[in-house]
Amino acid sequence: MLDIPELNKLICQQLNKHDLTQCARVNKKWHGNVIPHLWRDINFKWDREENTQVRQKKAFRRVVLEDYLMEQQQQQQGEEHSSMDQHTQGQSSFSLSTLKKYGPWIQTLPTPEHLLLCFNPQRVSTRSLRSSTRQVIEPTALELVRHLYQHCPFFQVPMLPLSTIEEHISDDILKTIEEFVLPRVHTLVLTTHPHNRSELWRLQYMLDRCSSIVELYLNIDISYTEDEKNDNEEEQQQEEHKVWPKLKILSLRKCYDKSQAKVFWPWLWKRCGHVEGLEVGEIGGLVQSLADGMLDHMPKLSDITLGRLYWTHYDLTDKAVATLLSDSRKEWK
């Protein structure tokens, strides 16, 4: 290995995880050079052989599980005699827990869904643990996912498909996604069907968490009809006027709103101050709202696609197209 970090990076990019592991075991210097690359991307696709993948996932779960249990143990000990600890725990970085050491290097992780599958409790797992941390109640998959997220301050989420209408998304899982994942998402494909005002609030909260969002693809069906709008709400909305700082592309694939007030959409348009590209699929009943939104809140809009998105062709009436385009100020491409 060379002493120049950029060159090490170039070399490490050429190596697979297995080769990197071998290099990490050469000596301390090589270990230090290789570790950031070894832990950079965590996914389980680099080998097509299925058995290997299963084994790797189990092994990864063991690493996270042990780390979790070790931290629990340390916390308990810490409460008992906190001052002693600082002397007895060695100065060497090798005594730190695995994720404390390597978590900050992690840049990509599997999707929350895959992590949950990967971390599902397994029958034999605790037996193969190293330390005296056996004989304890195993944490749930979600607790392990949260533990992992807490130790990865720099991971990125280039793309997240998220559907809240699927059954296996519990409220706790959603909370975890909101807390750790949404603020890092660059591209979000969101499918959701709010059935009442509080579910709509939840949706707004979720979208507000997406502070680094660049591209937003929406399939939203607001399916309740009763109108619970009150004056308070309107005031609140005027107070907070956040704009997504990085959002460049907004795509409304299939969006419907049966509610009378249709409060969600103006709320959405107000956040689109930096949007440059707009894609419109099916937006029954929202055409006028969108046309107003484009005019009032999307000054940077320069590229509009109507009707056809990728391989799907959506029906937009001529009248709808006319409304959307006539209200706009610029010459559209």
């Binding site: 592991t21 075991r25 092994a59 063991r62 090798f94 190293r130």
Partner: peptide
């Protein structure tokens, strides 16, 4: 011990 620990930490990368 350190070799041991590294071995443990890297198990998920094994092919």
């Amino acid at each position: 011990e350190e070799q041991d620990k590294i071995e443990w930490e890297k198990q998920w990368t094994k092919l």
